[in-house]
Design a protein around this nucleic acid. Sequence first.
DNA 1: AAAGCGGGCTGCCA
DNA 2: CCCGCTTT
Length: 564
Amino acid sequence: MCSRWEEEKKEDGVKWTQLEHRGPYFVPLYEPLPDDVQFYYDGKPLKLSLATEEIATFYAKMLDHEYTTKEIFQNNFFNDWRKEMTSKEQKIIKDLDKCDFREIHKYFVDKSEARKALSKEEKQKLKEEADKIQEEYGYCILDGHREKIGNFKTEPPGLFRGRGDHPKMGMLKKRIMPEDVVINCSKDSKIPEPPEGHKWKEVRFDNTVTWLASWTENIQNTLKYIMLNPSSKLKGEKDWQKYEVARRLKDVVHKIRAQYRADWKSKEMKKRQRAVALYFIDKLALRAGNEKEEGETADTVGCCSLRVEHIKLHPRLDGQEHVVEFDFLGKDSIRYYNKVSVEKLVFKNLQLFMKNKDPADDLFDRLNTSILNRHLQSLMDGLSAKVFRTYNASITLQEQLKALTNSEDSVAGKLLSYNRANRAVAILCNHQRSTPKTFEKSMQNLQTKIDAKKQQVEEGQQELKKAEDEFEDTKDAKAEANVEKKKKLLKRLEEQLAKLNVQATDKEENKQIALGTSKLNYLDPRITIAWCKKFGVPIEKIYNKTQREKFAWAIDMADEDFEF
DNA sequence: AAAGCGGGCTGCCA
DNA sequence: CCCGCTTT
């Protein structure tokens, strides 16, 4: 079966035998502003040096955003900006409040308007240029296959934003130069050429990693990589492997649950904390929660890093017992808010863990992610905290599909069931989105369509009645045929109306839920493909082109009998 | 520290 | 696109 996904195995840790590529594509250099676009300091025009001007444009472009009004953003920006100024500029520009970027801002607004207003031909030309770059830099050769690269361009310089309340917001993200870049490829391949007049930082031939190029980013001092697109064989196999690990968890999860329940009564505090944390990770699909360096990142937490202030205990709430109220900022500073009725022993343990602690103290003070993951690894090979998220997401999809799908439904009805199953997963994983800006409007449009369709249905009913009356009178074959015709028409109209109603329901339910993340990262695609085959739903109704490329491995191997 | 997977949002396109 | 997090 599926040849491409089951080629010969490599030695342990070896990811490829051949890797050839052109290196990153460097974003264009800064183009100075036209002379009539000026920066003003203290009301007077001030000509800036090239480097200073470039950084000024970063700030100017952001003037519309609320975060440029934040003190931290402004301070970080101004600090970094001043570092890049000439000494003469430093002596003049001492107060951000006296800086006037409005003309520069307008210049970029106009520019982007002008870009939108380009003729079809001009836009076509731009697209062709982009395609050419994609064609040249966007692919590599890996073990004889031409594979798409994910991010082949270096990130442009700009101001760092970060998510949520990030202490580094506004800092200058520097331009990546070839001298910063480490190239990784195979020894006997055509080594990528650095841009004219430049050198790579290093060229290495490491076949135990999957990246093509890397550099250190200056905000957090961490590495960034150029890697393959999800459609690649390498990524596909990794994805497959991930779901296979989750499926192995399925076989032992009952045992693991029994054990952590037993551990709630352990004499060792450390074990108890581990068992309660694992319960949360399993039941609520929380992330592991590594500890983070204070002041370097936004204050967000996961399971192991929960603090006392993040939960409230209610012995009784809204008719339920032993309710834990969670309220904290998780990954990307997305709020996790949930009220959950838990087992009595969990509740008692939480009371114990919180005793004599300050709100800012760790809830699980004897636990961290490495302790937890070491324990999980001992329970099952390859098991770590995140596997529970994958497992629970996928098994939930499978169960929900089973419960919600009606084989008698139209394709539209089945799709609503699918989306509802997907939604259950997204809610479990807390994948949220802000209500789309256009939500109300598009909802209204849909409602207008529904009203119009209702009208048509009524008309169709009247026409059918008329035709039936006529047949009653005449009893002739022509009139009888007309009745059939009107019946068919009415049926079609009713189906169209039903479909629109289903769409409206789906849209409303999906207002603040993001389905994409779970679909892409947590749901074993074979579950979906099997469901599509079983119920005659075209795969394209669920997965768009990009998604089908990413899940090619699953489309290749899953039949309708697949069970997660 | 290094590697690589997971996340929400925006603009563009079919 | 540009970041945030987990795992090892």
